[in-house]
Amino acid sequence: MKLLELLGYFNYWVFAIVLTVGLYAVISKANLIKKLIGLSIFQSAVFLMYITMDKVEGGTAPIIQAGVEDQVFSNPLPQVLILTAIVVGVSTLALGLAMVVRIKESYGTIEENEILDAD
């Protein structure tokens, strides 16, 4: 029973693991592109959490139809929220990559320790 309960939270386990993996990459990698990849993984984990919480068992898309009653709907709001958050994540990633390009132009490297040594 205990095991089933744990498995019932499968998506949340994945969320927690992906979140930590992403955060670990951000902290441990010295390469700036790898850091950004880690940041993206970190953010994707949150998308998963939001998508998971809106799902209602047996729920469908929230469209009201004539003649159909007692229909169970999934909550559409978290999906809308996370669409916005995905846009934010993409812009952050784009800006981060642009910064890496400029760092490469002016320092000639994208390794964090070499950049620190350069100044």
Binding site: L32, T92, L95, G96, M99, V100, R102, I103, S106, Y107, E112, I115, L116, D119
Partner: peptide, 8 residues
Amino acid sequence: LPAVFKYL
């Protein structure tokens, strides 16, 4: 630039 990257 590295300062902004860290901030980002």
